[in-house]
């Protein structure tokens, strides 16, 4: 065992050249479509309430302000631009998520996020397909529904199964005592991660849609076939999750209720509660235009382009060498 510092980059020169080409492709794509590139803070005063995202706290002291959070996504700031009437916007930014490190994760990563005024989720999925397949040269994605995928690969109906049936299905991976405090959505996430995801996007890219309303996050929800469905989509290629998009929720009251529900979940699981971003909620009050938005992981897109399995191969300096 050696403690010699590693100074060399983790990615090859060829990988970093491809990264630069990818960025040029993205900028060309949006320039051609007349979408404005913007830059919003990566250091903000608020983090997110999302119970499954851990922000990284900053210790800023400037003016009368202290604290701060490295942003997990530029979503709230970008939506404030839309509310101010700036129209469709995109951004390439670094985002930060604590505790996420592995072959597919680095605590700091590159996110491409964009919002399209007047688009619904289906229109935005088509644009995601143009961008991703234009860069990768792949076939356009097929669309798979959450319910069907769970039935096919996890052998359970995510809408009709009782909590007990779901837990029992999870016993393939977790001991009963580990399952005792796992929520219904936690069980669904386990099945999605271990039973379903590895199968997604194998033959051709696949959009997953039709998420249960409990996993809507910031997407609007509608009733479809008697089920509450979130207008949310993800794209998978070779079992790798690439993006997450919504037909955006514009209702400020509903947004506040979801933030408060997140904080209740946080309280229950012993995570710190997060202060609500009142500036974001005020922008929704003023009026967010009808829009859809999506966040796409650029490091992962490059992994697929280069056919590599480890995110370290596309990062100049992954966190443990940064």
């Amino acid at each position: 065992m050696t403690n010699e510092p590693v100074w060399q980059p983790s990615a090859s020169q060829a990988a970093l050249k491809s990264r630069a080409q990818q960025l040029a492709f993205v900028r060309g794509f949006f320039a051609h479509r007349g979408v404005l590139e913007v830059e919003t803070p990566i250091l903000g005063q608020h983090g997110v309430t999302d119970p499954n995202l851990d922000g990284i706290q900053a210790h800023v002291s400037a003016g009368a302000r202290t604290g701060g959070w490295l942003q997990t996504s530029p979503e709230y700031h970008m939506k404030r631009l839309l509310a101010a009437g700036f129209g469709s916007v995109y951004q390439v930014s670094r985002v930060f998520r604590n505790g996420e490190l592995g072959r597919r994760h680095n605590p700091e990563f590159s996110m491409l996020e964009w919002y399209r005024e007047g688009f619904d989720d289906v229109a935005l999925m088509s644009e995601v397909s143009d961008l991703v397949c234009g860069w990768l040269g792949c076939q356009p994605p097929e669309t798979i529904h959450y319910r069907g995928a769970m039935e096919r690969w996890a052998n359970i109906d995510p809408f009709e199964a009782t909590d007990r049936e779901l837990r029992r299905r999870c016993e393939q991976w977790l001991e009963p005592e580990q399952l005792a405090d796992l929520s219904r959505d936690g069980c669904l996430d386990l099945l999605m991660s271990f039973a379903v995801e590895p199968n997604l996007g194998r033959q051709r890219p696949a959009f997953m849609t039709g998420y249960p309303a409990s996993q809507a996050s910031l997407a609007r929800v509608s009733t479809w076939d008697g089920l509450e469905i979130a207008h949310r989509f993800e794209l998978y290629i070779d079992g790798l999750e690439l993006c997450n998009g919504y037909w955006e929720l514009t209702d400020p009251q509903e947004q506040r209720r979801r933030f408060e529900a997140d904080n209740r979940l946080r309280r229950r699981s012993g995570s710190p509660e997060m202060a609500l971003d009142e500036a974001f909620l005020a922008a929704l009050e003023r009026g967010l235009p009808e829009c859809s938005g999506v966040a796409l992981g650029l490091d992962r897109l490059l992994m697929i382009k280069l056919g590599v399995e480890d995110i370290r191969e596309v990062l100049a300096f992954p966190f443990d060498q940064a």
């Binding site: 499954n52 995202l53 592995g102 994760h105 977790l174 929520s183 936690g186 999605m192 271990f194 993800e234």
Partner: peptide
Amino acid sequence: EFVKPGKGQAFNRVKLRNLMTNRVWERT
């Protein structure tokens, strides 16, 4: 191995060797 859907619960898939029996276990 760290496994996490973007908006979901995170898990760790861990391979361990039991030092008493030398058997390899996979646990989540």
